[in-house]
Write a protein that binds this DNA or RNA. Structure first.
Lengths: 129, 129
DNA sequence: CACAAATCTCTAGTTTACGTAAGCTTACAG
DNA sequence: CTGTAAGCTTACGTAAACTAGAGATTTGTG
């Protein structure tokens, strides 16, 4: 039951346009599982996962070029110890990067909360006068 | 001692180029505290804070246009209860947005950790054979 | 088999967020 | 009072990430 889907369905499920998928394909980020006679692209579930991972990495602030450099690490089983260790190193770097971003968002969040508290107080004061 | 600074110092302290500051000014994100005779721009500390906030919001994924719509909320004391309540509503929305982003990053982080664990295991296995 | 909906390729245009270069003015150091 | 470093304005350039349009083909449905 390796049900394949066409570009339209993939686009809908991933929340991107089919243009974007074509674009990513040209950048080498994504390939259809199969290209049938007439040229229609057919994708499997991993294509969807790749698109989701691309979204994650984008929200981390990576450019598509940087993404193309690391995306396969999540899907390919590197061969040989050397390869695996290289993958491991890059994953650890990604983890650190993610932690930094989470920390920064935490600070930003605290800041917003402080502002909310201030506004709430100001409103309460204004109402009790 | 309201020591004002010129664009060069502001740019250095904020970690952006002076061209970026000019650009932000044209978008209405930032105004110099004073414009001296010949046209030199002079900035105070709040300009620096605004630039930092812009950076925060950018890393949240907001466009400069979106930023221009909310930036003042952090610096302006809205007048009147109506104004304050509007500010409060937008701040709460920002908070929710930030929380969503943090949650997504958390999931992404867990994913990376799983991959790291897998790779570590694979490497260990390969070494003990 | 007719036909609307979906895809295809290819080229060109758009938006965002700046960067570069030119030519002129201004401010301070020696 | 003369460099020279910093600023100013104006206009054009650019990289990234899409987006749109044209014109042909294909495919599922009645």
């Amino acid at each position: 039951m390796s049900s394949l889907m066409q570009i339209g369905e993939l686009a809908r499920r991933a929340g991107v346009s089919h243009r974007t998928i074509h674009y990513y394909e040209r950048l080498g980020l994504l390939q259809p599982a199969e290209r049938e006679g007439a040229g229609y692209r057919y994708y499997d579930e991993t294509a969807l996962k790749r698109l989701q991972k691309i979204g994650n990495l984008k929200s981390l602030g990576l450019s598509l070029e940087e993404i193309s450099g690391v995306l396969d690490l999540y899907f390919e089983d590197a061969t040989g110890i050397k390869g695996k260790e290289r993958v491991l190193a890059i994953l650890k770097e990604q983890l650190a990067r993610t932690d930094r971003q989470i920390a920064e968002l935490g600070r930003f969040r605290a800041d917003i909360e402080a502002n909310i508290a201030r506004m709430t107080r100001l409103i309460a004061e204004a109402k009790t006068t």
